[in-house]
Design a protein around this nucleic acid. Structure first.
Length: 266
DNA sequence: ATGACGGATCTAATCCGA
């Protein structure tokens, strides 16, 4: 079977539920991983997803901020969340899904943005971000014999081609050397592969986020690749496509992030 | 100036995002 999984920082799932419905109808993914749902679990639009067949839902939300949710047409097992940095916020949910006989562990992450200043002594948010990443080094891409897929808004653009200006963003949170190196350490420690860059050459400029603050986002094109899809090495051979749905940024009242879809053949 | 917009909240001005 073809297995399609998408990640999308939706920046309020309640405000944008109709564009999520349109996305699901058009792209027919099996699993959708959302970040920044910005609502408590009991306010999550469960019924709207049920009606489209996404009756299996792992929702981990809180009031007003953050929040992640994984919705699926396929049954979800072993649902759990890890409270990274023990802050009591909602930035991770995981589950196990079976697609065409292939068991997969799915991690859905919303890594802290890290505030304005890239200095752990002056900026507690930046310290939080680095500590969060440090704890992510414990994650194994192949735990318990089940290969994993890790998706989400990691709030780091690791490669020079992941930002509109490598030089101008070297001191800007999301592209500082300490962040990109630590993210590399997370990948090395867990044995993760960057599936987006496996499919789209690292030389190619690629963004998944454009600030609300730049007027003409498409012309200025001052974006960053903050959203990621990683996996265990053994899943690389099953990857058949990566689709960054750039046109979503041009919708009426869009999220500042666009969806990214990975397609596998199992 | 990279860039001042956009979401949620005790609906008004404040916090937060990256």
């Amino acid at each position: 079977m073809t297995f399609k999984i998408a990640t999308w920082n939706i920046n309020s799932v309640r405000l944008r539920i109709s564009m999520v419905e349109d996305f699901l109808n058009e792209h027919q993914v099996d699993v959708l991983c959302l970040q920044e749902i910005k609502c408590q679990n009991d306010l999550f639009p469960t019924a709207a997803f049920n009606e489209l067949g996404y009756v299996h839902q792992a929702v981990h939300g809180q009031k007003g901020y953050h929040g992640v949710a994984t919705v699926s047409k396929l049954p979800l097992a072993d649902i759990s969340s890890t409270d990274y940095c023990e802050m009591g916020d909602t930035r991770h949910v995981e589950c196990v899904v079976e697609a065409g006989g292939q068991k997969l562990r799915l991690h859905n992450f919303y890594v802290p943005a890290g505030g304005d200043e890239a200095d752990v002594d002056k900026n507690p948010k930046f310290a939080h971000k680095l500590k969060f990443l440090d704890e992510m080094k414990q994650l194994d891409a192949d735990s318990g014999g089940i290969p994993s897929i890790l998706v989400g808004d990691l709030n780091i653009a690791p490669l020079p081609t992941d930002v509109w200006s490598h030089k101008q963003l070297l001191k800007v949170v999301s592209h500082t050397p300490v962040e990109t190196e630590t993210l590399g350490d997370v990948m090395d420690a867990g044995g993760w592969e960057d599936l987006i860059r496996h499919h789209i050459p690292p030389e190619e400029i690629l963004f998944t986020w454009w600030s609300y603050r730049s007027k003409d986002w498409n012309v200025a094109n001052k974006g960053r690749r903050l959203d990621h899809i990683w996996s265990a090495p053994e899943l690389k051979k099953s990857l058949v496509d990566i689709n960054v749905v750039r046109e979503s940024r041009g919708l009426e009242k869009p999220s500042d992030h666009v969806p990214v879809i990975a397609s596998f053949e199992f």
